[in-house]
């Protein structure tokens, strides 16, 4: 099992934690997004990830700036507002041997990009899609986003009279096979979910409540640190176990631990907490999200898991060589092939 930060210690690739960092953050001090970026750095280091094989992608907004702050050795693309999904789809079809971590926000995903978000999921493009969800527009100074609480009052925006969009529900309805909610203040859970998400064959959605210290951090807001620390209610103690490690469940009571093997042979461990939550049932997942919303519960953990759907690369029956690396001879059919086509006219 991973054993937390090991400063200065090299991983299997001979890299230290520092090697996985990006540019210094220009976000506010204390912004939840910085914490998430740090967890991505930590996870990539712990998983011995080769940075050039992972794309970091984003749209526009505070959240979308953050890919610049992690995995400085990765190729990245900070695209357009709400349109990271389409860019990601193309990039990962252009080279399906690459993986990607996309970072979006609640405006980028819940408003302008809701359509692209749902269609990315519908196509099941293999990537980790992080929504850094704070319920507010930061760069434009404090407007409500589509995930803001109904009835909430903000200094700039007044009262929000509209119901929130639930990112996890939208993801499940669109067909996502890996849907989790977490809290940027719960670093360990964020890391474990991130590790599992990186091993999921399809679009893995992480809706991470990530407080905005500048515009939406009053304890009354469900997107605040205070609320999160007070109310976070994990559905289970979530853990991810790599392929090589023996999974230890001997000391568990039957029914206390759910273990799910992922396609690549790694495992997800769900240690039962107060309720016995089964994330493999779609309708149950939606029901649980709805009751959480109705009761103002801040549930976190793996909300839905289904590995059955093929990815877009799978259904496109792509040859092993990425499209980006096809030779000129592979790109242009033969002289005879053209002659044969011309004969048909």
């Amino acid at each position: 099992m991973s054993s937390g930060p090991r400063r200065g210690v090299e991983n299997k690739l001979g890299l230290t934690l520092k090697d996985y960092k990006g540019q210094p953050s220009t976000l506010c001090k204390g912004c939840g997004h910085n914490s998430i970026a740090n967890q991505i750095v930590q996870v990539a280091y712990e998983l011995d990830i080769a940075q050039h094989q992972v794309l970091r992608l984003s749209g526009i907004g505070c959240s979308s700036k953050s890919p610049a702050y992690f995995l400085g050795g990765s190729f990245g693309f900070n695209s357009l507002h709400g349109r990271m999904p389409s860019l990601a789809t193309g990039a990962l079809m252009g080279n399906h041997s690459l993986h990607a971590i996309g970072v979006s926000g609640d405006g980028d995903t819940g408003s302008i990009g809701l359509g692209q978000f749902k269609h990315l999921i519908r196509r099941n493009v293999r990537m980790v899609y992080v929504v850094e969800n704070n319920g507010v527009y930061g760069l434009t100074k404090g407007q409500f986003s589509a995930t803001a609480d109904e009835g909430q009052v903000l200094k700039y925006a007044g009262e929000n009279k509209l119901p929130p969009v639930d990112v996890c529900m939208e993801a499940i309805v669109a067909g996502a096979g890996f849907v989790a909610r977490s809290f940027s203040g719960d670093a360990k859970q964020v890391r474990e979910l991130m590790k599992a998400a990186l091993h999921f064959e399809g679009t893995a959605v992480l809706d991470i409540i990530s407080p905005c210290v500048a515009f939406n951090n009053a304890d009354t807001s469900t997107k605040s640190y205070g609320y999160g620390r007070e109310h976070e209610a994990p559905l289970h103690d979530f853990g991810w176990v790599p392929v090589a490690e023996e999974i230890e469940i001997d000391d568990q009571e039957p029914g206390e631990m759910r273990v799910v093997e992922l396609h690549d042979g790694s495992f997800i461990k769900l240690q039962k907490l107060e309720e016995d939550y089964d994330p493999s049932r779609k309708v149950e997942a939606l029901r649980r999200l709805q009751t959480a919303h109705d009761r103002q519960e801040f549930i976190t953990g793996l909300i839905y898991l289904d590995e059955a759907r093929p990815t877009l690369a799978d259904i496109s029956n792509l040859a092993d060589t990425p499209l980006a690396h096809l030779s000129a001879a592979q790109l242009r059919p033969s002289r005879q092939a053209l002659a044969a086509v011309m004969d048909e006219f």
Partner: peptide, 11 residues
Amino acid sequence: GMVLGAGWSGA
């Protein structure tokens, strides 16, 4: 968006 993504990655 897809076309630019693919073009960027080398397709």
